[in-house]
């Protein structure tokens, strides 16, 4: 009788951890199962009101957009790039020309007002379009992002022949 009493008092003296550890392990398992490494995603912003609205309010002071025409091979790769009626060999060169137009001078200037309009073939693969947008929207130099053109728009889709 005396022995049982002694054992009981010892049991109650310690903090009951079992239930807490149960819950904590459940939480751990939940987080472990939902854990997934995903590459971070970013956006290119495109502001494009409908064509009709744009036509209704013509702004004479607005600089017309620089037209970039990209044609595609039948497999959807880049066949040719034209930058305002000048043929450009590749996207790196397109970036050079954009840099020439925008200028790298800091401060407000042509950066905000320059707009690039992409006119791409219907079957051009989307990844090349993103590459072209990357080429005109900026570059990385010494770990710093230098922005070139922020306004980007597209022409209406060309129907496949």
């Amino acid at each position: 009788m005396r022995i049982r009493n002694a054992a009981q008092s010892e049991e109650t003296s310690g903090l009951q951890m079992t239930s807490m550890i149960d819950v904590v392990f459940l939480l751990l398992v939940f987080f472990l199962l939902t854990f997934k490494i995903v590459a971070p995603e970013g956006d290119f912003n495109v502001k494009m009101p409908a064509q009709a609205a744009a036509r209704g309010t013509p702004d004479p002071s607005a600089i017309p957009p620089i037209k970039v025409r990209i044609t595609a091979t039948p497999t959807g790769r880049i066949a040719s790039i034209r930058f305002a009626d000048v043929s450009v060999p590749n996207l790196a060169d397109l970036r050079k020309r954009i840099r020439g137009v925008v200028g790298d001078a800091p401060g407000p200037g042509t950066l905000e007002s320059t707009e690039v309009e992409f006119d791409c073939d219907y079957n051009l693969r989307y990844e090349y379009v993103i590459q072209a947008i990357t080429a005109v929207s900026g570059y990385i130099e010494g770990g710093r992002v230098i922005k070139l053109v922020e306004k980007i728009k597209f022409t209406p889709p060309r129907k496949p022949d």
């Binding site: 791409c120 051009l124 989307y126 379009v129 597209f154 209406p156 889709p157």
Partner: peptide
């Protein structure tokens, strides 16, 4: 990335 650009334009 492999869809045609025209489809994206259509969605827009």
């Amino acid at each position: 990335g492999s869809t045609e650009h025209g489809v994206v334009q259509q969605v827009i």
